[in-house]
């Protein structure tokens, strides 16, 4: 199973309409919109991608396929910026 773990080099500040992430090593900062911030929080709770998508289905009016696509797209972005690491068991 593939798990995505938030980088220990990332600091997050959540606000009402999203979150800002700081990458303490690359010295870049990132804005996540509201949905992105929810996904980040669920990743911090150590949920696998499939469960994150499942939570989005519960939280929002979205079908599982669209939620999964949104999660995987964000994970791709976060991984390419070294904000999450990929662990394959």
């Amino acid at each position: 199973m593939t798990r995505y773990a938030p980088s220990p080099d990332a600091a997050c500040a959540a606000v009402d309409d999203g979150a800002v992430l700081l990458h303490m090593r690359t010295k870049r900062y990132y804005s996540l919109n509201e949905t992105g911030a929810v996904i980040w929080r669920l990743l911090q709770d150590d949920l696998p991608a499939a469960e994150v998508a499942g939570r989005l289905v519960e939280l929002y009016d979205v079908d599982r396929a669209a939620a999964h696509e949104a999660v995987m797209r964000l994970l791709h972005d976060l991984t390419s910026e070294a904000l999450v690491s990929v662990e394959t068991a």
């Binding site: 990132y30 804005s31 919109n33 992105g36 929810v38 996904i39 989005l56 929002y60």
Partner: peptide
């Protein structure tokens, strides 16, 4: 759903 599908990240 459109908002849920837009888990976007922007970089600076």
């Amino acid at each position: 759903g459109a908002r849920a599908a837009a888990g976007r990240v922007s970089v600076s």
